[in-house]
Amino acid sequence: MSQTSKIVRVTGVVKNFDLGKIVVEVLKGIDLEIETGKYISIMGPSGSGKSTLFNMIGGLDKPTEGKVFIDEVDIAQLDAYELAWLRCRKIGYIFQTFNLIPVMTALENITIPMTFAGVSSDEALKKGMDLLSQVGLAGRHEHRPSELSGGQQQRVAVARALANNPSIILADEPTGNLDLTTGEEIIKLLKELSIERGVTVISATHDYKMLNVSDQVIWIRDGKIEKIQQREELNISTGGLASAH
């Protein structure tokens, strides 16, 4: 059962943005199912509706038509408190720009989601330290974001995303602001944690390095799903790319 359970289900989603004079149709009917524990990449050119779909899956935006289910809960039915709870407990966010709270130390950044979730301070500190060492930053807990490199900040962000043991990690271009090697390290870390904890990773990306670790790649073009590739197909196509060079 856990092998086939669907953590995210998107049915007939249409999203329009009303710009006053014109209405822009960004998503034109998306149907999608994401299985628990998979590593998913959403790929697509800028303006394809990739970010809009991604935000919808993350409970950050509501569809104009259609339904988005996260863990079989229709997010359109949730009030502000329930949405906040969902963001706090079910979803871990990783951003392109890291988005650590600049005034707090690495450890404090990791413990905020736990504070929101009502975890006691001692327990949160202990878990925060564990998470820091899991992402390879043991001993850096007292450092502020400005005292950490980009890669280190993103590691703290990964640890923060994992703080409340979410079912889903949403990563928006997690390697977009990192150099090649650091980006690869973060991808590897995400993949390892996904396998280790059985957490579903969904990332919107331009980064072809992501393809190697993805179980599934969803290609979006012009507000529709162009194709969904499974891992096996990907090996062939990336192999093809490599041999073409």
Binding site: A80, Y81, A84, C88, T97, N99, I101, I112, P113, A117
Partner: peptide, 14 residues
Amino acid sequence: FREIGTLKCLGALD
């Protein structure tokens, strides 16, 4: 704005 948005993503209420 980014800090506030992030806090809300982490579950902060208005």
